[in-house]
Amino acid sequence: MIWLALPLTLALYFLTRALYRRLPWPIINPVLIPTLVIMGIILGFGLPFTDYQQGTRPITALLEPAVVALALPLYQQARQIQARLKPILICTLASVLISVCTTLAIGYCMGAEPALLASLATKSITTPLAMSVSQSLGGIPAIAAAVVVVVGIIGALIGYPLLKLFRVTDPEAQGLAMGACAHAIGTAASAEQGISQGAFASLAMVMCGILTAAVAPLLFALYHWLVP
């Protein structure tokens, strides 16, 4: 399967990127389009998903080095980050509180089970952290991972158009917003916009992950105390 899965995945990714350079529409996303095409091929031809997944293991193995590589724009923007560390911390903490609290409030109004709430509350942080934090809260890691991917793709699609609509033009503010709301996929989209956007998106993604791991258990404990 590696002879089909690996070339197909890479070809779809690079073709989508090339198309995006010609037609820079948000819907032409190098994560969304290949994902939909590959899902269609797997379902249409009845291919075993596990075999296809095994065929893309060389790409999967590059995920961890790719995340580490996000430290490069952080290093390049170290002075700007240090000068704005306090507002960055306030913004990322506010993002975490809004994300978790709105999930709990909406879930309560809709009668969601605690396990589902725990799975959804980590929707705005990167997948490995979301699965770990969700499981520690009594959630379902598989649901958490799926929700994170959906949120990231939606954030990458509508993030910059929304920022433009609300006239948020500062590159650092754009990066913080994308990293805080759309984690790694939003960070990748920010890196294509510029060095400052990529650096601040990387920083927001990391800080939101750490803060969610610290704050979410406290908020869930308070939720269960208020809503027995």
Rank of each mutant, 00 (worst) to 15 (best):
L203Q: 12
P141L: 08
I143R: 15
V151S: 13
D170K: 14
A142P: 12
I185L: 08
A177H: 05
S202V: 10
G139R: 15
L163M: 12
Q193Y: 02
G159Q: 06
V168G: 06
F166E: 07
T187Q: 10
V151C: 05
V151M: 01
F166D: 03
A156E: 08
R167T: 14
V168P: 10
Y160A: 03
E192A: 11
Q197V: 01
A189L: 00
A188C: 11
Y160R: 09
T169I: 06
S196C: 08
A189F: 00
I140P: 09
A204S: 13
A184D: 07
A182F: 02
A199E: 07
L162R: 10
I195Q: 15
C181V: 14
V149C: 06
D170L: 11
K164R: 15
I185M: 07
Q193L: 10
P171R: 04
D170H: 14
F166M: 09
G194R: 08
I140E: 14
G175V: 05
I153F: 00
A199I: 06
G175E: 04
V151E: 00
T187K: 15
A204D: 07
G186Q: 13
A146E: 02
G155V: 08
S136Q: 15
L137G: 13
G139P: 12
L165I: 00
S202R: 08
L157P: 04
G179P: 07
A199C: 14
A144I: 00
T169V: 10
R167D: 07
M178F: 02
A188V: 13
S202F: 01
A144N: 10
G152K: 09
A146L: 11
I154F: 01
V150W: 03
V148D: 05
A191I: 03
T187M: 06
I158R: 11
G194A: 04
P171F: 01
E192P: 03
M178I: 02
Q197E: 07
A144Q: 06
M178A: 05
P141Y: 03
V148R: 11
A201E: 11
I143D: 12
S136M: 11
A145N: 10
S202L: 09
P171A: 04
A145I: 08
S196W: 00
G175C: 03
A201G: 12
I154D: 02
G194N: 06
F200P: 13
F166S: 03
G139I: 15
G139N: 14
P171E: 05
T187S: 13
F166I: 11
A188T: 14
I140K: 15
A180F: 02
A180Y: 04
A189E: 07
V148T: 15
G194M: 01
T187C: 09
Y160I: 04
I154M: 09
I153T: 13
A199R: 08
S202Q: 06
I154N: 04
S190V: 04
G139K: 15
L163N: 05
S202I: 10
L165E: 01
A188W: 03
A189M: 09
G198Q: 08
L165G: 05
S196T: 15
F166R: 05
A177M: 02
G159M: 00
